[in-house]
Amino acid sequence: MIRTSLLIPVSACLLLAACAGTMHRSDMMSAPMPVADAIKVPDGHKLAMQTVGVGELRYECRAKANTTDQFEWAFVGPTATLNDRSGKAVGKYYGPPATWESMDGSKVTATQVAVAPGGDGNIPHQLVKANPAVGSGMMSGVTYIQRVATKGGVAPAAACSAANRGAAQTVRYQADYLFWKASA
């Protein structure tokens, strides 16, 4: 026999568990996650847009700088779709130069300010300072962009040597891009 005094608390726990199981990622990510001090946006800025970049990073086998007999996979550029938290495409990220473009046609390029470790097998987290936007729209007024929550994207594990100099490879990756604007 079930005691009714236990039924209400148990029912409440089950209801909360069911709701938590159906929570969307956008609900959980409504506020930016804590980031390393190195890539924090300076005071006086507010979060304007959050996207998830999904795509590929291109690498090319090249001689290391100032050498002729040592080789490495050099980063060439990205090709990614920027999605909102519901998975709808809202823009794209490509380069060189690194360019974030909204579906409304506005776009920004940026200069790297700092990086922080992204974890084993993941490209680093990053802070970039945006150049003035081209066009009016979502990218207009963007001052900083953070790359966080990276998955994958590191240089290929394949050998890079004189034998395959000039070879190109793409690597899948995903990252959250947080767009910041100056506070009014």
Rank of each mutant, 00 (worst) to 15 (best):
V90G: 15
V41D: 10
S106R: 10
K40A: 15
A18D: 00
T68A: 03
A63Y: 06
T111E: 00
L15M: 13
A18C: 00
G77F: 04
L14Q: 14
S106G: 14
V35L: 03
C13W: 06
P78L: 04
K40T: 15
V113N: 11
M103L: 10
M29D: 12
T109Y: 11
P34V: 07
F71S: 07
T67A: 07
H45I: 09
V54D: 06
V90W: 14
S102N: 10
V10M: 13
V90D: 14
A48H: 12
V108P: 09
M23V: 12
M33R: 04
K88Q: 09
R58K: 11
L16R: 06
T99I: 08
F75W: 02
C61R: 02
T67F: 09
M23P: 04
R85W: 01
G105A: 06
S11D: 08
N83P: 05
W73R: 08
A36N: 07
M23Y: 06
Q112M: 00
S86M: 07
V90T: 13
A89S: 15
T22L: 15
L16V: 10
A36K: 04
L47E: 10
N66E: 11
E60I: 08
T68L: 01
V113E: 03
G44H: 02
D37H: 12
G44V: 07
V41R: 02
G91K: 00
K40H: 15
M33C: 02
T22C: 14
V115T: 03
P96K: 10
Y93S: 14
D27S: 09
A20L: 14
P96L: 04
T67Y: 05
S102C: 03
A36Y: 04
E56T: 11
H45K: 03
D27F: 00
D84Y: 11
Y93I: 13
V108H: 04
S11H: 06
I39V: 03
G21N: 04
T109W: 06
P34F: 02
V35C: 01
A17L: 15
T22N: 15
K64A: 15
S106D: 13
P42Q: 02
G87S: 10
D69G: 03
G105V: 01
A98P: 02
D43E: 13
R25N: 08
F71K: 04
A48L: 09
E60V: 06
A80E: 05
Y59R: 05
V35F: 07
D37S: 13
Y59W: 03
Q112D: 06
A63L: 09
M29H: 13
N66V: 09
D37Y: 03
A110N: 06
V115S: 08
S11M: 02
A114C: 09
L82D: 02
M103R: 06
A114Y: 05
